[in-house]
Amino acid sequence: MGGTSTRALAIATQKLNLWYGTFQALFDIDLNIGQGIITSMIGPSGCGKSTFLRSVNRINERLGYVRITGSVDVMGEDIYQQGVELVQVRKQVGMVFQRPNPLPISIRDNVLFSHRLHTSDKCSKARLDEIVEDALQQVLLWDVVKDKLQHKATSLSLEQQQKLCIARLLPVKPAVLLMDEPCSALDPKGTEAVEELIWELRGKYSILIVTHNMAQARRASDECVFMLMGKVIEHTDTGDMFVTPRNQETADYIEGRYG
């Protein structure tokens, strides 16, 4: 399917099917997400966008009743293969959730959380400070919080919390960032700020972002995936999709004829 085929792939799925218990949520998903670009994922509520995202970082497995067939390759490695370490998968594939979910610890500890999980040897305090500053700089949050790094992360505004949730993924240098409607809990100003940030991160990370906001998908992504009822209907350059959708369903959705 679509996309720019010459580009190296960040995520590649083959015949991915997923069941919650007996309910099938994903059907034969073959999707190739390119490296270093922003891909947006749109589709009506309940079509399986979150489900797809969550199976790329295997966080779905928390539920215990999820079953999968097919394969998901991240940077060329099948992450569902036996012997693959869950911890490594999650290090490589960072996830940002719909509701900002910073941990109820200090801002600094939030930024270092992932780093501490994945680095066994002790770093000097200076090195840690550097990591914190670098991550917060990347999400344009450093100037705001540099004087209150010891404050609880949960005391920040939602916009800042969401930026922090992105920042804490960066120290372990993930290849892929998954974002599930990262702006839906934010006000328009916060949305704009986070969008801007995501655009800043373009090129450094491969980003897959789910959104309900057509305008956001249009202005903030290189490629766009349209899903419907657990299937991928269309995957093309964002510009093409919004100007000349190939499928009737895509056209209907873009014009707002679905929920």
């Binding site: 970082n57 928390r62 911890v87 999650r90 290090k91 959730f97 979910n101 959380f113 999980l117």
Partner: peptide, 21 residues
């Protein structure tokens, strides 16, 4: 639960999640 989810999504094991979060 979103704290658990956040910690696990970053690669924390059950035990790390319990004693760190």
């Amino acid at each position: 639960d979103r704290y658990r989810e956040a910690a696990e999504a970053m690669g924390a094991t059950r035990w790390q999640m319990i004693y760190k979060v």
